[in-house]
Computed example of a mutant assay.
Amino acid sequence: MSETLAATTAPTTARRATPRSYLMCRPDFFTVSYRINPWMHPQQPTDTALAVRQWQSLYDTFIGLGHDVQLIDPIDGLPDMVFAANGGFVIDNVAYGANFTYAERQPEGPAYMQWFGEHGFRVAEPKNINEGEGDLMLVGDTILAGTGFRTATESHREVADLYSREVVSLTLVDPNFYHLDTAIAVLDPLTGDHDANIAYLPSAFDEASRGILAERYPNAIHVSPEDAAVLGLNSISDGLNVVIAKRATGFEASLRERGYNPIGVDLSELLLGGGGVKCCTLELRK
């Protein structure tokens, strides 16, 4: 049975939703035609129409929660462009662009940077390999930065200099969780560091990173491998409502115990490309 446990017993806190602004990309050209992560199997058929319907349900969920959702036009030949979170990292109206590891996704970086520039963001072109919010997460006043599979550690220093914020490097060790946003969910994004909280999969990290997370977030929810395997941690929280994978039932129960309102959605077709709720969603922090 799937089981999700809190690291410690934490009191239920009154939660408050805060409206957010997101960038998304319709999966009009979604398919799995190459393999750059363990989830992808090009020999298996994909249903683009189903992917669009599931994505639309996620979009409608965000709109129903009162969030602003902006759209970037999909580009034929870039099937992973739907995973908007990888397109950059935005704080204080400054957009740090993505520089993808694999050639198949490299054209996405300039496309997203062009969108940022056309929509009033100051664009910082990256000098190092990074995959945007896939490996960069704002938690309170701190940026958690992943490395190990995609994003270069040199980009962490670049981000620290750009935003003048503390950047904490974390090393991923499980190839199934190759981006930080598959192994950590940010639950209280807008609070100060002393109140911020997360959920995560301990086994996705090396020993040193597990120690950092345990010290910084003693009340974090530890999510089971079963819930993580359906990308349950690849979620979006507005401080109260947490949009998660529908099949992450253990994580859902733990969120309810903590006073959050989990909302399950089905993105099973996009999971064939290695993406979930967070992968489809880039936060625009102006």
Rank of each mutant, 00 (worst) to 15 (best):
M1P: 05
S2I: 04
L5F: 15
Y22P: 04
C25P: 05
F30Y: 15
S33T: 15
N37T: 06
T46R: 10
A49W: 08
A49V: 06
A51G: 15
T61Q: 15
I72K: 08
D76K: 14
L78N: 05
D80E: 04
D80P: 14
N93L: 03
G97M: 12
G97E: 01
F100K: 03
E104F: 00
E104A: 14
W115M: 02
G120Y: 07
K127L: 14
N128P: 08
G132R: 11
E133T: 03
L136M: 13
L138C: 10
A145R: 02
R150N: 02
T151G: 07
T153H: 05
E154P: 00
S155H: 15
E158S: 05
E166N: 12
E166D: 14
S169G: 05
L170G: 13
D174I: 10
F177L: 07
L180C: 08
L180E: 02
L180G: 08
L187E: 09
L190A: 09
T191S: 15
H194M: 08
H194T: 08
D195H: 13
N197E: 13
D206L: 13
S209L: 08
A214M: 02
P218R: 03
V223W: 13
A228Q: 04
G232N: 09
L233M: 11
N234D: 07
S235F: 11
I236D: 00
I236S: 06
S237K: 13
A248N: 11
E252H: 12
R256M: 11
R256F: 01
R256K: 14
G259I: 01
Y260D: 00
N261C: 05
P262I: 01
I263Y: 01
G264R: 05
L271Y: 14
L272Y: 07
G273E: 10
G276E: 01
K278P: 00
R285D: 05
K286F: 03
K286C: 09
